[in-house]
Design a protein around this nucleic acid. Structure first.
Lengths: 337, 337
DNA sequence: CTTAGCACTCGACATGCCTAAGTGCTAACA
DNA sequence: TGTTAGCACTTAGGCATGTCGAGTGCTAAG
């Protein structure tokens, strides 16, 4: 029994099953693929594959379907990433060009990716760690309430209302702002925490409490800013592939709604040398996604934020991986170096 | 045949069907409710109700289920809005208190409402028409690109990148900003369009083009600002009530994802004197929602933005209406007059 | 190592039967 | 005139049965 042919058989099974949604038997296999051997030989190979835990039979006399492990082997060793069609490349390019707002770009991107793959697409907001402070604004909303606005050189704006604990006049606040801005403009967001104490201590004790509160607000904005948010599109595609989630799509929707779950999942997915990482079925840390796979990759200047696609374990991995990779590249290019 | 009893029978049918999900027959009806007449009499009443198009039989010998028209009559004339339990009131109060950020408040609100009703909750961003301008900021991102930030007295921040069409220095931009801010601070967003031309014309011809572009950017921010966005929660609840959407929840998810559809739907729902509007099944303008009902009401200072719940036609209207109304009231109170 | 052949296993499907639920109708009743 | 009892009729759904086909595992031969 030749090892290469065994892999070839696995490849054929995965491809046929992805295509037909039905367990694939030995006879159908030799008909659809020109393997050069008879069905009986394939049966032996299949028995071996089943012993290896790569495929399984739903019941005694049905064809075989790949297991999570089988998909894993397929993704890791067998499949070649399909290049996108020319039309698809053009669609990506035209759809993502000509928008300047980050929100807008990400919104378009998820929609595009979900349409390209017919699945659920997810994009994490890019990290701002390398971004620097371009502007700080304090706006007095009420005697003790200040709206803190942080504008980064990436065009990102974050805001938060802070209770400063003491009454402040408008000009006092303006003074504090000037101090902050003077010392902090150009500082990278990741270094902000180190730079803040010096600024605060340079402010007179009368306004020390307020300055402290404002500094804390800035820190929160800089640190936890949008990198823990994400945008999503294509949930309706889940329902279309209803059959693919035997139990129910309920748990999957729950996972998607609990952004925390998705973000953790994305961040835990190790970086693959080929650039696209896949998490298959029960490999997922969340039980609700036991029948789902996630294909993701990093993007952006730092390659820290993630973009990905979620679908049934029975998905077209090569095409999906190609789409994710291509969209991530275009997105990185648009967001600049 | 007494007319009041006919309505009573309809009420009983709706309640039983909502409770059991199964067509309800004449015998079960007299057992569960003390109507004081025999099942044969009820059968006559049911036949009349069917003639009126208020109930229908799935097949010859099954019980009856309410039609859209039946639900409509039930909602309009029969049902009384149930008061919320004390525990629920307390839950609303504690969950919605102690947050200052609008995004945060709305986020909590949808989650709360979806949990309260076990359905999909939707909240439209409140209109800002009565809000006034508190602050304007222009930040030079590139020689010709300016980030325009508009801060309203409601604590809302809107931003947009504008191509000013000419190269600008930092101090020139600061000058323009001072002009804008001086003339516009305190202006209501709805009047901004009228006030802008005067400001622009007061700026020297050398920077006229840029000022024009900036004014346009401000106008867009003020006018189309978030009122065309919405927040949503509880989509997973759709899957749980899988049975309630015989076809598939696909179309429903599509409608929810197309925010345009939902926003139009919400805005088209007329204001009901009792404060809560209901759109039932095929009454919905969107085909995908033919098996869904929407319960919505206005909230906020102007009572222009909408908050609502979407679920299967077979929903517990009294309870849902009570929850929507209560949450809308609390939300209005928090957002202030 | 490959192949052909064969017995065996199960799911899918059709058929027929039966029961429970529920209706509509008619005739009697208050 | 409205209500009731009784009865024939309809239908979905559960259950047993039988058949068919797809697919497997195994064995023996090439």
């Amino acid at each position: 029994m030749s090892e290469p042919r065994k892999l070839e058989v696995l490849r054929a099974i995965v491809e046929d099953y992805v295509h037909s949604r039905e367990p694939v038997g030995s006879k159908a296999l030799v008909e659809r693929h020109h393997l050069g051997v008879s069905s009986a030989t394939i049966r032996n190979d299949m028995a071996a594959l089943e012993d290896d835990g790569l495929i399984t039979a739903p019941h005694t006399s049905a064809g075989r379907i790949p297991t999570d492990k089988g998909y894993r082997l397929f993704v890791d060793q067998i499949s070649a990433v399909k290049p996108l069609s020319q039309a698809e490349r053009r669609a990506i390019q035209t759809l993502l060009e000509g928008s300047d707002d980050l929100d807008d770009v990400l919104e378009r991107t998820v929609r595009l990716l979900s349409q390209l793959t017919n699945q659920v697409a997810v994009v994490q907001y890019p990290h701002l760690s390398r971004a620097t402070i371009r502007h700080i604004e304090f706006v007095l909303l009420a005697p003790r309430q200040v709206l803190v606005v942080l504008i980064a050189n990436t065009g990102k704006v974050e805001q938060k209302v802070v209770d400063v604990g003491q009454e402040l006049a408008d000009d006092a606040l303006a003074g504090i702002r000037a101090r902050f801005l003077g010392s902090l403009a150009g500082t990278s967001l990741s270094q902000l925490t180190q730079s803040l104490p010096a600024v605060v201590s340079g402010i007179g004790p009368a306004q020390r409490q307020a300055a402290q509160a404002l500094a804390h607000g800035l820190e929160i904005l800089a640190h936890s800013s949008r990198e823990d948010r994400m945008v999503m599109a294509g949930t309706a595609n889940l329902a279309r592939s209803n059959v693919d989630f035997p139990l129910s799509i309920g748990p999957v929707l729950e996972a998607l709604e609990e952004q925390v779950v998705m973000l953790r999942l994305l961040s835990e997915m190790a970086q693959d040398p080929r650039g696209v990482t896949v998490s298959i079925g029960r490999e997922n840390p969340y039980d609700g996604l036991a029948e789902a796979s996630v294909v993701a990759t990093a993007y952006g200047p730092d390659s820290t934020a993630k973009i990905g696609v979620l679908g049934p374990t029975r998905m077209d991995y090569p095409t999906t991986m190609a789409a994710v990779r291509a969209v991530a590249r275009y997105l990185s290019r648009i967001l600049g170096p």
